[in-house]
Design a protein around this nucleic acid. Structure first.
Length: 633
RNA sequence: GCUGAUGUAGCUCACUCGGUAGAGCACUUCCUUGGUAAGGAAGAGGUAAUGGGUUCGAUUCCCAUCAUCAGCUCCA
């Protein structure tokens, strides 16, 4: 057979497998080979190859190689668990980003001690270097095999597979599992692994089904690489916004208000900086600002559809025996603002923004620091427009979001979410709206993935996702196209023909919620905010109390120039004061001793660069002003 | 909401196999007036998340509730 490898055609004996082919090319490649790509499809190294193909040997440097290694590690985990608990029922065990997991149905939940025992057993299996074999069975025999092994979840999986799907199994030693593969040629290729945690997980991700026990782990081809990864994860945890929020005295969520955050003075400065910037950039992009009430009548929420489609998440209350709801979204309020007058097509698009405080009843287990709270401020805006304006407006919002994210240096990915199950409106409207969003993305050449059924109940949406310090992603920005609410609220504008027409509506947020965005910001900068956002921009440190007057004067000068400065006049050594300012991540320190006071300068120290030497107050202010204006990171 | 773990001083954490708790940092006072990441001493701080139960006696054991953490589910 002929195989094309890296563009070069080579001849091999028919029926060879990729592992042996790797060996023929070079022994070192054979040692590192984990799986192979045959005509673009990833296969196990042990599968025989017939005929002419394009072949690529994959190692741990390749995504598919890492996945294969970790998938095999999950099988080894299942094998180890069965050795320790033969009565365990196996569910599924895939490779995931940076690791793998396997779900088991067991009578007693796993304990940390069990985890240690399982690790030991896995190490034994790996050391035995058991060969993996792949085989296929017809459906009836496959079912028999899994029934014989008393694995009801596997039986269910087989029954749910399409009639004509090949049923492949992988076997290593005394362990056989239904699996599409690919897998390593032998267990010994897993050079480093660790079981990281135990958690509950619903069978097939369905909260109405049984909760199984999941074991998470990670595996590497190299011990040093795993150590580096684990260290990196430890480091990343130090950036956790909940930890830094406490250390930097920014915010807290107390037992008295689960999911309802408190913002402290320093956190408020950060927040206000973001809001000021938001107002400025929205003004520049043609938005006007409004404010709508937090509590509105039941009839409004019935008209908007929230009462039917969103009630599980809404806090309700009674006033004078009438039902009211605390707003979970700003749109009905924004719509009432639109309806206050008659609109001409000449006035559209109408872009009205609102920093709107919303409350949503989130399940207790879903709460997470500032990332997932029960009350938050959306930097919302509603755009009312003619159908012809849809694409331009979507592009405008997209560009606005991109501009804001780039100021902070965020990387993001985009998802398009389509019609969910519990939604309102006609198929035609959904189709039109979805096409509008998709068309705009395509025209701009934006890469995105499609998230089936994850839209809002009133329309499809484009979501922007940002990463936290340990790689979990959080939806922040979103652009939602809505043809339903304008219909429900009978919104109109007068066209050039003098007739009434129905406007289209966009709901959009840039930050998403100020709270979540602050959480992401804290982790992104590890608390060392750029100068323009820093709660304290300059800390003035005195060496002796003879310099107190000069320090007070400097503080006044800086404050007069709009710089947030704090004094440290304590009777402490300069090294101690610097250490504290540094740990509080203050961007600049101005040190004042007898020498500086005498010559009318300050010794400036930067958080990042250390001692910058003496500087006049004017020069220092000019430097700060420029850095703030540039929003330098 | 579900599964598991956790809850001790403002913070980070010890100890107690049941006899009402201790350290470091922070705080207060005193000494020290010092040159770029921790000067010294003394003092003050806790009804051990909350509510029950077992016990002569519970912070410790048991149960419930609440909250937090990890994951699942759900979502900005």
């Amino acid at each position: 057979m002929q195989l094309i490898m890296k563009g070069e055609a080579r001849t091999f004996q028919d029926g060879m497998n990729a592992l042996d082919i790797a060996g023929e090319i070079s022994n070192s490649l054979k040692k590192e080979a984990l799986c192979a790509k045959l005509d673009g499809k990833v296969i196990s190294l042990v599968e025989p190859i017939e005929g002419d193909h394009e072949l690529e040997i994959l190692t741990f440097a390749d995504e598919a190689g890492r996945k294969t290694l970790r998938h095999t590690a999950s099988h080894v985990l299942a094998q180890a668990v069965l050795h320790l608990k033969p009565e365990a029922k196996l569910a599924i065990g895939p490779a995931i980003e940076n690791g793998f997991y396997y779900d088991f149905d067991v009578d007693e939940p796993f304990t940390p001690d069990f985890l240690a025992a399982a690790e030991k057993e896995m190490a034994r299996i790996i050391k035995k270097n058991e060969r993996l074999e792949r085989f296929e069975l017809p459906r009836a025999q496959a079912l028999d095999l899994m029934r014989e092994k008393d694995q009801p979840y596997k039986v269910e999986l087989i029954n749910d597979l399409p009639e004509d799907a090949p049923l492949s199994f992988y076997k290593q030693g005394d362990f056989t599992d239904l699996c599409a593969g690919p897998h390593l040629p032998s267990t010994g290729r897993i050079k480093a692994f660790k079981l990281t945690s135990i958690a509950g997980a619903y069978w097939r991700g369905d909260e109405h089904k049984k909760m199984l026990q999941r074991i998470y782990g990670t595996a590497f081809f190299d011990k040093a690489e795993m150590e580096a990864y684990l260290t990196r994860m430890e480091e990343a945890k130090k950036r956790d916004h909940r930890k830094l929020g406490k250390e930097l005295d920014l915010f807290a969520i107390l037992d008295e208000g689960p999911g309802f955050p408190f913002f402290f003075p320093k956190g408020m400065i950060l927040r206000n900086q973001l809001e000021d910037y938001w107002r400025k950039i929205h003004h520049d992009h043609g938005y006007e600002e409004i404010k709508t009430p937090i509590i509105l009548s039941r009839s409004l929420w019935e008209q908007s559809g929230h009462w039917d489609h969103y009630q599980n998440n809404m806090y309700t209350t009674k006033i004078d025996d009438q039902d009211y709801a605390i707003k979970p979204m700003n749109c009905p309020g924004g719509i009432l603002v639109y309806k206050r007058k008659l609109w001409s097509y000449r006035d559209l698009p109408c872009r009205s923004g609102e920093l709107g405080l919303v409350h949503r009843h989130e399940k207790s287990g879903a709460l997470h620091g500032l990332m997932r709270v029960r009350c938050f401020t959306q930097d919302d805006a509603h755009i009312f427009m003619t159908p012809e304006q849809i694409k331009d407006e979507i592009k405008g919002v997209y560009n606005l979001i991109d501009e804001v994210y780039s100021v902070f240096g965020f990387k993001y990915h985009v998802e398009l979410s389509t019609r969910p199950e519990n939604s309102m409106g006609t198929d035609e409207m959904w189709q039109l709206a979805t096409d509008g969003l998709q068309g705009a993305l395509d025209e701009m050449g934006v890469k995105y993935t499609i998230n089936e059924g994850d839209g809002a109940f009133y329309g499809p949406k484009i979501d922007f996702h940002l990463e936290d310090s340990i790689g979990r992603t959080w939806q922040c920005g979103t652009i939602q196209l809505d043809m339903n609410l304008p219909e429900r609220f009978d919104l109109t504008y007068t066209g050039a023909d003098g007739e009434k027409h129905r406007p289209v509506m966009i709901h959009r947020v840039v930050f998403g919620s100020i709270e979540r965005f602050i959480g992401i910001l804290i982790e992104h900068f590890a608390g060392a905010f750029p100068l323009w956002l820093s709660p304290v921009q300059v800390k003035i440190l005195t060496i002796t109390n003879r310099c107190d007057d000069a320090a007070l004067a400097l503080r006044d000068q800086l404050e007069a120039a709009g710089i947030r400065a704090e004094l440290d006049l304590r009777n402490e050594k300069i090294g101690f004061k610097i250490r504290e300012a540094q740990m509080q991540k203050v961007p600049y320190m101005a040190v004042l001793g007898d020498v500086e006071v005498e010559s009318g300068v300050s010794a400036i120290r930067s958080r990042k660069e250390g001692d910058l030497g003496a500087m006049t107050t004017e020069a220092f202010i000019a430097r700060l002003a420029q850095e703030v204006a540039e929003k330098a990171r």
